[in-house]
Amino acid sequence: MSLGRREFLAWGTAATAGAALAPVISLVELAQARSPEEAASSLRRWGLLIDITKCADCDECVTACHTENGVANNGRPRTDAQWIRKVNLRDKRTAVAQTLPLMCQHCEDPPCVDVCPTGASFKRDDGIVLVDKHTCIGCRYCVMACPYGARSFVHETVTGQRPDVPRGKGTVESCTLCVHRVDRGDAPACVEACNRDGGKAMLFGDLNDASAEIHRRLHAEPSAQVRADLALDTGVRYQGL
């Protein structure tokens, strides 16, 4: 079979156009919500940027998170789960005070994933660190390993779970970056609440997407990781720390 001149030209043009368009198409796709039939992609890395100079003396993010995820307060602070908490800092020498929200930092190399015997603690392709509660045996080794105290063990029977957020006694849980919201194209509940009722300190986005605001700011302004000395490459970054 020989290719005619005309066909050759036609194929060639199409191929060139395709090659030129491909990156554009993928960019457009990244900017949109993923379809339900699509898997989480390793091209993305979801993350947060928190400017603690703007972090107000409120706990809108905490309330919003625990409402969204059905994390109830049983009046037992030692054993109640906390997916996100406000941490108050005071410099030991200068007494300068700061406040910031702390949650799972969604590490690139998460210690909780390394230590989990069954592989229930895992990192999704798009960088979100999760607990597969179907295989979690409740050994709490991940709680021992987490440098941020981000994980909670469910100490008692849970009722009234949210349909998108299964939770149950005897397993470990932590911030999911509101994976059910992220998967339908929304920002996590804490970010939404902070920008609506709080200090507008939190920004959510794809750290790999050059067109995203979070990417632009991380590349233009200084930022820090909590316990950067552990070299875990966290997905949550702070400014003004």
Partner: peptide, 25 residues
């Protein structure tokens, strides 16, 4: 003492070989 001792079978069938705990099993 596990949170889900009923899932012992999971611990016997799912392994994460980077975990020293899994090695200990």
């Amino acid at each position: 003492d596990l949170g889900r001792p009923d899932r012992l079978i999971v611990a016997m069938t799912h392994y994460n070989f980077k975990s020293i705990f899994a090695w200990n099993i």
